[in-house]
């Protein structure tokens, strides 16, 4: 099935990229301490890690739309909106509390 293979590629890319950032970031940290550079690389790893499931949802929406499977396109879109709501809530909470 096409969607499964596509999702497999997205997930694997996310895992490889974030793990690489984590490894390089920790090595830089061990060699040079908690500098701006090591912090930046590690932050990038975290963001890639968090973005991977989001990317998987976006790819699924695209695939369901291209198959004209509107029910599942809508359900997957709701999941994306829920993830966006979490991100928005995080920003709001960050300012308020």
């Amino acid at each position: 099935m096409k969607l499964e293979r596509l999702i497999g590629v997205v997930l694997r890319a996310g895992v490889v990229l974030s793990s690489t950032c984590f490894t390089v970031g920790l090595v830089v940290y061990l060699l040079a301490g908690y500098t701006d550079l090591s912090r930046l690389i590690l932050q990038t790893g975290v963001i890639v890690l968090l973005a991977t499931p989001v990317a998987r949802v976006v790819v699924s929406i695209g695939q369901y739309v291209s198959e004209r499977d509107w029910t599942f396109a809508a359900l997957t879109l709701i999941v994306l909106l829920e993830l966006m709501a979490s991100a928005a809530a995080a920003l709001v909470l960050n300012r308020r509390l």
Partner: peptide, 20 residues
């Protein structure tokens, strides 16, 4: 992810420890 994003936005996620 829906939960982790909230902790991350609140500054409760330390990247170096998460990486390890």
């Amino acid at each position: 992810t829906a939960g982790a994003v909230i902790y991350y936005g609140r500054g409760q996620l330390e990247p170096a420890l998460a990486a390890a």
